Amino acid sequence: MKKVMLLVFMSLSLVAFAQRGNVNDILFTTSGEIIQGKVVKVTASTISFSYPGESLVNEIGSNQLQKIVFSSGRTQNFGNASTSDSAAEAVTNVPTPQAETPTTTIPKEEIYLGPDENSVTASANNNRLAVTPMTYLVNGQYSKEISGKATQFATDYLARQNQSLPIEVQEMALTIRKLVDAGIGFQQLAQTSAGKLQSVLGSEYLVLIEINETHQKTEAKKDNGFFDVQKEQAKSDDSIRYEIELILFGSGGAETYSSKFSNERSFKSPSGNSGSQSDWKMAMQYVLDQILTSGSL
């Protein structure tokens, strides 16, 4: 009886030692696969992880996972039904990882985190174009409302007009969600390289646009004629100037096309009111058409 108890005690000790020695996180997929690696980031839609002995970061959708068992022993469930009943019971039998790369299904999106972000080629040649949230300035002041409308307008316009080109224009909502998941807010957008943005957004082409709207008002001068007292009050000359700068980046963050366009509209207004705020759309259409006809896509 003592020998039996000793054998049971030794078996339990070996299992506990094997579990403590496993420094990898374990991902259980809904298809029954078991992936060993190190989880580096968890968002609402994706999980980023690296295989043992590799620095390459891979992504897999959270809807493809049943759960994650972290090396600390904590388990995170995702509520997705598993197609393999044995997968949930295999955690105590996972062998210690060897030097060779585990044989698993590689996620469709990979990001190389090297010293040169311009060398990112994970999403190259997929013919997808993303319009980043643009900057719209009115007399030097940032307008969040018009910036959002202008970004949506540019995205929709390119999606409608590129029917003859094999280009997929990414929806604005998806672009915003990917930037938020990557921790890139509006303040960090200007400091992030084009190559990094392409990697985050999963696009081959990237469009950056900045619009500066300037209002000017000049009072008309009266003539010092004899009959000035009988003339109507002089009207003011109002003008709005639109300056648009556009840059198109291709594979690897390389600048493939750029354009600077300015347009000024003048009109008479006794009250000094500005012109229609939709005038910028005509100027932007002209600039966007240059992309579609430049041969850069």
Rank of each mutant, 00 (worst) to 15 (best):
K260N: 06
G275T: 02
N63G: 15
S123H: 05
F70E: 04
S48H: 12
G73Q: 04
K178Q: 12
E213P: 12
E255A: 01
I47H: 05
I211W: 12
L65S: 08
I244C: 04
T46M: 15
E245K: 12
E100M: 03
L165S: 02
L201S: 11
A283W: 02
T46Q: 14
Q233W: 13
G185E: 00
F249D: 02
L129T: 00
Q64R: 15
L206A: 13
V138I: 10
E204K: 01
Q161V: 08
S13T: 10
D228S: 07
G295V: 00
L65E: 01
G202D: 02
G73W: 03
R241P: 08
G79S: 04
N22F: 10
E210A: 15
G114N: 10
P102F: 14
D85R: 14
G250D: 01
A16L: 09
L189F: 00
G202C: 05
S271T: 10
I35C: 07
R128C: 00
K221H: 07
A18H: 12
E89G: 10
A159R: 06
R265M: 12
S123L: 06
R241D: 08
S45E: 05
D228K: 04
G32K: 03
L6A: 08
L27R: 07
S84Y: 04
P95S: 07
Q191N: 15
E145M: 11
S294Y: 03
E213V: 09
L65D: 04
A190Q: 13
T46V: 14
V120D: 11
L7Q: 10
Q66V: 13
G295C: 01
V57H: 04
V169L: 02
L65C: 06
S11F: 14
N80G: 05
E54R: 10
Y136W: 04
E264S: 11
N212F: 06
G250Q: 02
M10T: 13
D238R: 15
F17N: 02
G253A: 05
T192S: 08
Y51H: 09
S11D: 15
Y205D: 09
G202I: 01
Q187F: 00
Q141R: 08
L137P: 00
K2V: 10
P107W: 09
I167D: 02
I47C: 11
S82E: 07
P107K: 13
Q230I: 14
V200G: 11
E110T: 13
Q36S: 14
P107S: 14
I176P: 15
G114M: 11
G202Y: 02
Y51Q: 08
L137N: 04
N93L: 13
Q233C: 10
I291S: 00
T214C: 06
S259H: 15
V8D: 12
A130R: 05
D238M: 15
S274V: 09
N263Q: 06
L297T: 00
